[in-house]
């Protein structure tokens, strides 16, 4: 009986030891993983000042020009945006949709005749990817080096110019790209 109790005790201790080891297998939320692109919007006339973009939504364009909706991004009036970059190719195409609104043609229950209003500009971000080891639980993150940004010309661009603040995106501590409008 004494040995039985001792066995139980030792088993409990080893279970606690084993359990405490499990944390290595979970990627901590505080880990700095693959960084996202931070855009900051500035006034084209007064280039030191930030300027909000009204009713802005951003979404991605995939290789077939299909829309990719970004998680946790909503229509908002803001002077900055956080956008995920593609980790399988060296470029990301992003649509910045200003003054987003829907004209329902007076038929709120029928969305077949709806017209999407606003001004869309497409920006291209190119970069060189590098995969950096984090830990056994998180694996690898991608960082994006030597980024370049261009804005597609269209009939009515609202985003007029861009400037790179940080060329190597390794964290989300500060804005990487300025967009002037």
């Amino acid at each position: 009986m004494k040995y039985f109790k001792l066995s139980i005790f030792i088993l409990l201790i080893t279970t606690v030891i084993m359990f405490s080891c499990e944390k290595d297998d979970i990627c901590a939320e505080t880990t700095s993983t693959t960084p996202q692109l931070i855009l900051r919007f500035y006034d084209i006339l007064d280039q030191e000042d930030t300027k909000t973009v009204t009713d802005l939504i951003a979404y991605g364009l995939d290789d077939n020009n299909e829309v990719v909706v970004f998680d946790d991004l909503f229509i908002t009036t803001t002077d900055s945006l956080v956008i995920p970059l593609r980790t399988e190719v060296n470029f990301t195409r992003i649509v910045l949709h200003k003054d987003y609104d829907i004209d329902d043609n007076g038929t709120p229950n029928d969305d077949t005749d709806d017209i999407v209003l606003g001004n869309t500009d497409v920006i291209n971000v190119t970069y060189q990817r590098e995969d950096v080891y984090l830990s056994r639980a998180c694996g690898y993150k991608s960082v994006f080096n030597n980024i370049a940004v261009s804005i597609d010309s269209d009939i009515s661009n609202w985003a007029l110019n861009s400037e790179i603040l940080i060329a190597n995106i390794t964290n989300e501590n500060a804005a990487h790209v300025k967009i002037y409008h």
Partner: peptide, 16 residues
């Protein structure tokens, strides 16, 4: 193999 760890998974995940 490894899968690039992204908290935002809007784009397809990349497995190497």
């Amino acid at each position: 193999s490894y899968t690039v760890y992204s908290t935002n998974q809007s784009w397809p995940q990349t497995t190497n």
